[in-house]
């Protein structure tokens, strides 16, 4: 019974991951499990990652996390969610540092570290390869 329940949960989880992945199914956006949102518009996710919005509605500080590798996931996220290029994004952060003193999201090297950080931080939001998602974090569905 327990094993059946586990398989059901795993199956649901994997189905969820693929259902909410990007257009090419390469990444999912994840948040801490305490996050009250299940769904966010693409534009709102963009505002969070560009630090145009600094706090969640319940007061937790937004803590966006940038994944360094694999680079393809980073590129897909930048183009599909942020709708820009990595080069334009770098220019944006230079401008933000100088005009507002706002720094870009922390870069974390590995997927496991990203998940650990999201699991430990109430306001965290990140993206990881769709195949890497697990029950330690919550998947945020993105509406176009």
């Amino acid at each position: 019974m327990t094993r059946r329940r586990f398989h059901f949960a795993l199956g649901s989880l994997l189905a969820t991951c693929h259902a909410f992945a990007g257009d090419k199914g390469t990444f999912v956006v994840i948040v801490n499990k305490s996050n009250q949102f299940d769904v966010l518009s693409r534009a709102r996710v963009e505002y969070l990652f560009l630090r145009k919005v600094s706090r969640w509605p319940w007061g937790a500080e937004v803590f966006p996390i940038d994944l360094e590798t694999p680079a393809t996931v980073c590129r897909d996220f930048t183009s599909q969610v942020l709708r820009t290029t990595e080069r334009e994004l770098a220019n944006y952060w230079i401008d933000q540092r100088m005009t507002r003193g706002v720094v870009p999201p922390s870069k974390v090297a590995s997927v496991a570290d990203v998940k650990a950080l999201v699991a430990a931080t109430p306001g965290a939001i990140a993206y990881i390869p769709a195949a890497a998602c697990d029950r330690t974090v919550k998947i945020l569905r993105i509406e176009q």
Partner: peptide, 17 residues
């Protein structure tokens, strides 16, 4: 989750730039 939270600094700091 809490266990991972306790573990995260050592893991994450190792790979932060």
């Amino acid at each position: 989750t809490l266990t991972r939270a306790a573990m995260f600094p050592a893991q994450v700091r190792k790979n932060c730039r």
